[in-house]
């Protein structure tokens, strides 16, 4: 059951939003009821719809395919830059950690227990992208 709407509320909505299909969804059903029952509301609605139609005359051209492609490419470049930074950070961290661990291990454990570190090829493949 739709809650009845006051004439004042109907006018306020038509003046703010225009045609009923543009109103907030919960108010539309009551709006249609009142527009059908009250000729003054129907007139107010017709005026609002006429303004909507007038405003709709102002269209703007859609984006070009080239612009879409530029944006997708920019996102791809962003990923590559981030991947490079990420791998660079791992590389720097590994070198530093390796240097510290190597120094400690050489003193305490002997050379055969020192860890192998990361495969250098990942840095090359990250560096070759883009």
């Amino acid at each position: 059951m739709t809650e009845p709407m006051s004439r004042e509320r109907f006018d306020a909505l038509a003046q703010a939003y225009g045609g009923i299909e543009r109103w907030p969804a919960p108010e539309r059903a009551a709006g249609w009821h009142l527009a059908a029952a009250d000729p003054a509301c129907a007139r107010a609605l017709a005026e609002a719809e006429a303004l909507d139609l007038r405003l709709d005359a102002w269209t703007v051209p859609p984006p070009t395919p080239a612009m879409r492609q530029r944006l997708v490419a920019a996102r791809r470049r962003g990923w590559i830059v981030r991947a490079r930074l990420w791998w660079s950070a791992i590389g720097v961290g590994t070198v530093l950690a390796g240097a510290v661990a190597g120094l400690g291990a050489a003193v305490a454990l002997g050379p055969e227990r020192v860890g192998p570190g990361l495969d250098a090829s990942v840095f090359e493949s990250a560096g070759e992208e883009g």
Partner: peptide
């Protein structure tokens, strides 16, 4: 917002 819209449309 409704007030801004109504004044603008008027």
């Amino acid at each position: 917002l409704e007030s801004l819209l109504a004044r603008g449309r008027r």
